[in-house]
C-alpha cells in the first residue's frame, strides 16, 4: 500500500451548491416535459390541457434548492417558449412564473434561512396587487375571495408551521411520509406561485367577472392535478435518487 495522500475534493462546478450538470439536465427535462400534455381534457384553464412541466417546477426547487432550481426552471421555460410556443401565452412573464415556482420550492425545503419571509412578502404583495386590481375593474370582494380560495390556502400554509412539516416529511425515509410531504409541499408552492403568476397574467389579460365565477371550481381542480402529478413524479424520482446514491445538491430537500 502506498503512502496516503492529502486530498481536497474540489468536486465539479456548482451554482448555489448544485452541480452545474444537474441544472443543465433539469432545464432540458423541463423543456421536454412542456411537450407532454397532461391528459386532463376537462380543464378549461388557459389553453386546455396543461403541460407536465408545470407540475415539475416545485419539484426542481425541492431537488436543486432555490437559486439553482429557479435557474433550471427559467432556462427550461425560456427554451420551451420558442420550441413549443403554444405552451406559453405570455412570453417573458411565464419565465418569471416558472422561476418563482421553483424558487418557492427551494425556499420551502431550505433549512436555517429567512428567505421564506421575503417570499411571503412577495406572495402577499402579489395577492394584493392581483385582487386589488380585480376589485377596481368589475369583481366584487365576495367573488374575489371565493375564486382565490386556493391562493389564500397557499399563503396560509406557507405562513403556518405546515411549511416546516412539508419540509421534514420530504426529507423523511418512509414513502408514505415522502408522498404526504410532496403533496403538501406541491400544493403550497403551486398555490403561492400561482398567486404571483395571476398577478402578472391578470395584467396581460384582465378576464371579466363571469370568468371568475367559472374559475371557482377550476382553479382548485387544476391545483389538485398539479399536486398529484408532482407528488407521483417526486416520489419516483426521490426514491430513485436515494437508491442510486447520486451526489445530493447541497440544498436538496430530500
Amino acid at each position: 500500500m502506498g503512502e496516503e495522500r492529502q486530498v481536497r475534493p474540489l468536486g465539479g462546478t456548482t451554482i448555489d451548491g448544485a452541480p452545474i450538470a444537474y441544472i443543465i439536465v433539469w432545464a432540458a427535462v423541463l423543456v421536454v416535459l412542456s411537450f407532454v400534455p397532461i391528459p386532463v381534457s376537462a380543464v378549461l384553464g388557459i389553453g386546455g390541457t396543461f403541460p407536465m412541466s408545470q407540475a415539475a417546477y416545485a419539484l426542481v426547487g425541492f431537488i436543486l434548492g432555490p437559486w439553482a432550481g429557479a435557474l433550471a426552471a427559467g432556462i427550461g421555460r425560456l427554451i420551451g417558449i420558442f420550441i413549443a410556443p403554444h405552451t406559453a401565452t405570455s412570453g417573458i412573464p411565464s419565465v418569471v412564473i416558472a422561476m418563482v415556482w421553483a424558487a418557492a420550492g427551494g425556499i420551502l425545503v431550505e433549512k436555517k434561512s429567512r428567505k421564506w419571509v421575503l417570499a411571503l412578502i412577495v406572495f402577499v404583495l402579489s395577492y394584493v396587487a392581483f385582487v386589488g386590481r380585480a376589485l377596481t375593474i368589475d369583481v366584487d370582494l365576495g367573488l374575489a375571495l371565493q375564486t382565490t380560495l386556493t391562493n389564500l390556502s397557499g399563503l396560509i400554509l406557507w405562513l403556518l408551521p405546515t411549511r416546516l412539516l412539508a419540509r421534514d416529511w420530504i426529507a423523511d425515509r418512509p414513502p408514505a411520509k415522502l408522498a404526504a410531504g410532496l403533496a403538501l409541499g406541491c400544493w403550497t408552492v403551486n398555490a403561492c406561485g400561482h398567486t404571483v403568476g395571476n398577478a402578472l397574467m391578470y395584467y396581460v389579460n384582465a378576464w371579466p367577472a363571469n370568468i371568475w365565477r367559472i374559475l371557482i371550481p377550476i382553479i382548485p381542480a387544476e391545483q389538485l392535478f398539479r399536486a398529484v402529478v408532482g407528488t407521483v413524479i417526486g416520489v419516483g424520482v426521490i426514491t430513485g435518487l436515494r437508491a442510486i446514491g447520486l451526489v445530493k445538491p447541497a440544498k436538496a430537500g430530500y
Binding site: 443543465i24 407536465m52 402529478v229 424520482v237 447520486l246
Partner: peptide
C-alpha cells in the same frame, strides 16, 4: 381520471433519473 394521472405521470420518472445519471458523466467530461 386520478388513476390515469398517477400512471401517466410516471413517464417523467425514468426521464429525470436517466438525465441525472447522465449529468454525472457530463461533470466528468467537463
Amino acid at each position: 381520471l386520478l388513476q390515469r394521472l398517477r400512471v401517466y405521470s410516471r413517464v417523467a420518472v425514468p426521464l429525470i433519473l436517466g438525465a441525472m445519471v447522465k449529468s454525472q458523466q457530463i461533470e466528468v467530461v467537463l
